[in-house]
Amino acid sequence: MGKYILKRTLNSILTVMIVFVAVFMLLRLMPLSGYFPPEMIKETDEATRMSYLRNQGLLDHPLVQLGRFIGQLFQGNLGRSLTVYPKVPIATLLAEKIPVTAAFGFASMIIGIVLGLSLGMLMVRFKDRWGDHLGTGYILMVRAIPSLIYLFFIQVWVSLWLNLDMVFYDDKPTSWILPVICLSLGSIAWYALWLRRFMVDEENKDYVKFALVKGLSKKQVWREHIFKNAIIPLVIYLPSDLLFIISGSLVIETLYVIPGTGGLLTTAIEKQDNNLVQVIVLMYAVLSVLGVFLGDLLIAAVDPRITLTEDK
């Protein structure tokens, strides 16, 4: 057990390292001019710009920069943003943005699980009948139509229809409703889809037939056997979902003007804010690897067939 965790941890660190170094190096391939907004290029001369870059350490060999960054990291210093929020410490930036996004993420995750599982059960309960068709239709809409499109229409029309705000206000809870709902649409579909699939799989297994032969009612078998077994393979994704509530949705945060982390990475990449990109990529890589790891631990805890001493 201990050995397994150690091995997995080392392996995870390696993955994170490779991802990080790869992104770090790719970023250094970008042209130097990208570090300056167009207006700045017009206003300043070549020498000022070069000295600025030198001061920032951006002209050093990439490996030197890498070493410096890691050194700072161990001192708890994430560095400062270059272009997106010039000179603001990244730690401060994240500390401000993450709570907002996480609050939305957490709320929508809860809604997603509750409604998603309910919808999934409804679909199996009324398989090949109205419940199933309803759920399938919903899943189809959410998964097939580009999210941007339906999110946009929800913002424009549903807000009008229900008389809700079209943008986010920090101090106005009713303005939080739409973004939370929008954020949970995808995960509702995801949970419903997979719960239905796993429950249908379980339904055809011998032990379910044997449970029915024992004389248990269908309802009892559904509740005690099929549902509980079908939920196990979903558990593995819980830690990832929970960790990634801080990543936010770019589209929703842009549409509702939420000051969260959603668009941060894309903006940072676009504006070539290397310091910021590095930190965010590192953060996401750690979260994703950690999520998978915790997922494995969790499933080992709930599924007696899986032990951690053997791989697979």
């Binding site: 490779i18 391939l29 970008m30």
Partner: peptide
């Protein structure tokens, strides 16, 4: 390992990078 790495690098990174090149 390759799977983990590739799925962990945001595709916007490639896109922006390639767009520059």
């Amino acid at each position: 390992e390759i799977y983990n790495i590739i799925t962990n690098i945001p595709s916007t990174v490639y896109l922006v990078l390639l767009a520059y090149i």
